[in-house]
Nucleic acid binder design. Structure first.
Lengths: 146, 146
DNA sequence: TTATAAAAGGACATTGATGTCCTTTTATAA
DNA sequence: TTATAAAAGGACATCAATGTCCTTTTATAA
């Protein structure tokens, strides 16, 4: 399972993308409200994202968060990597420190398939691909369709 | 990812099964050492397992942990359920409270496949099936083959 | 140029998971 | 019957994730 922070981050980035498509740069308050997360905590997460160049921001009046052209195809993997690290893609499902093909835990083969399947998803899906689904009405960002 | 407690629990149960096959009932100290977990913490987890009848125990001299006949085919699902709950089998990968087939988040379809794949594993694999792999030398419990 | 609105950032608070210590209960061996 | 070995259980400690509050920096509009 992804951490709460990662979930907030992904939802926030998708919202920023949707707003950017409307030529707008949302601010912390608007983002936090949309993703149903505490405002100050959301601010911290957004800070992490901009510090790591996954997104851009502008201070001052009329400022807010936005993507520039270099950041146009951000994978979920990159977000996870920055926010919570990528242990979930490497770790043994059984909790063993030394578990690999040569020295497998009893869950190794089956678990690897699941873990790699998840890795494939987050390497393929991007903030843009998720945002497009929402724009097309094929999916929703929060619980209230609106 | 499973919690550390769940990992300890599964490893502990497998070790108890292996020992039981040798007509032995290991105690907290021996179990903790084998699974490389703190002894007092291991004791708490074993307590949870016996309180929930996933395993049996005997106090006093010559006591220890063991399975009785009703507990002979314990699935990993039951262990996870008791130790950390089963949020990981229900939760939306995107963190939405209301996410389902009718109201899907943009990750819903792909994530469901992975999540259900994991569910399938833990409903199929049992403490016994894992222990058998170790007994057959097809897998290892801890990092040192011995 | 100044007031204002916004992100950045530092310090602290809360909570749950993990971990430790000590006492109580109980079964058995001596 | 008593001493001992073992699990059970209560109370507390530590740490990381999550969450809050307040100050600083900076860009823009007036």
């Amino acid at each position: 399972m992804l951490s709460k922070s990662t979930e907030y981050a992904i939802r926030a980035l998708v919202f920023v993308q949707l707003k950017n498509w409307e030529q707008k740069r949302p601010g912390v308050g608007e983002i936090a409200k949309e993703i149903e997360a505490p405002e100050a905590y959301t601010a911290k997460i957004l800070q992490t994202l901009t510090k790591n160049k996954l997104m851009d921001s502008m201070k001052g009046r009329g400022g807010g968060f936005f993507f520039n052209d270099n950041q146009s195809n951000l994978t979920l993997y990159e977000v996870i990597h920055v926010v919570e690290g990528d242990a979930c893609f490497h770790k043994c499902g059984f909790g063993l420190k030394q578990c690999n093909n040569d020295n497998p835990c009893p869950l190794h083969e089956q678990y690897k398939i699941v873990r790699d399947g998840f890795f494939e998803i987050v390497k393929t899906e991007t903030i843009r691909s998720l945002s497009e689904k929402i724009k097309q009405g094929e999916a929703v960002l929060n619980r209230l369709k609106k």
